[in-house]
Design a protein around this nucleic acid. Structure first.
Lengths: 142, 142
DNA sequence: CCTTTTCGTCAAGCATCCTGACTAAAGTGG
DNA sequence: CCACTTTAGTCAGGATGCTTGACGAAAAGG
């Protein structure tokens, strides 16, 4: 890959991010969720336990409702999500996880925990805390 | 955006990465390179000063030569890249930056420097060094 | 009521990738 | 020098993941 010792920081962040994504996909594959694309990242993080409407979900994910509708449709037909009528609004439907969906979520969370445990082992507790603090400061818009 | 204080680290990395990308696109836009897409990230980092052949460029970027050919074609018609015959091989063409391409590269590098300067101001020199060291350790495959 | 807004869908299109098939040039072994 | 195989790039077709625009049905608010 070449020498990264002077690579610009934004690039390092991109590489780290890509690496974690790859590990995550790998973990899902190993757990038997082989029918997945990168769709997980786009949809799963924004579905709350109690379910959510399509428009709100699309807003959260920063996407149009049409695009989100197609993704949700795919995940429904794969058995990860379900659509049920919203009792409070005849136009809307509530999108929520199925049991299979929850199992996949649990796999994702376990993978996150694995990554964090691995980092903890490599960096130690102090540097780990510092890293998290630094990342959150970076996101706290300047 | 909600509380991120317990967000998983992989997610924090993704958010940071996305934020930097956005800043970069913004910097390009402000510098007058308004005809750009995210194509920069995919192509520019892999074009060396002396030029490169399509197949090698595609390999570097982890893409098929067909996909890269289309991207390069777009960037050629926008005036950022040029294709010239390779004197050493009648089949091949050398892909290299035009003057306009170099100007865009310089803008990108300046944006990276801005980001680093901003981080330095916020984190201080010690934490900055530590961050870079940590990121590089993470990429040094376990 | 009747008008306006909101929820979700359908349709068409664009961008970015892929696989497969092909031409032309270059190397390679008698 | 001449087949034979490999390599460089292109053409064609298709999948995916997004977009904008238009629409019907339900809700909201005078």
């Amino acid at each position: 890959m070449g020498d990264e010792s002077q690579a610009p920081l934004p690039r390092l962040f991109g590489l780290c991010s890509a690496k974690f994504s790859e590990q995550l996909l790998h973990a899902l594959w190993d757990a038997g969720f082989t029918d997945q694309r990168a769709v997980y990242d786009r949809v799963f993080p924004f579905v709350p336990p109690e379910g959510i409407r399509l428009t709100a979900l699309a807003d959260r994910a920063g996407m149009t409702k049409q695009a989100m509708s197609e993704l949700v449709g795919d995940l429904v037909s794969m058995g990860y999500l379900q659509r049920s009528p919203d009792p409070a609004d005849g136009r809307a439907k509530l999108i929520a996880f199925t049991d299979r969906g929850w199992a996949a979520v649990e796999t994702v969370l376990a993978s996150f925990r694995d990554v964090e445990a691995s980092l903890l082992g490599r960096l130690g507790e102090r540097r780990m805390r510092e890293l998290r603090r630094t990342l959150m400061e970076l996101l706290d818009d300047a």
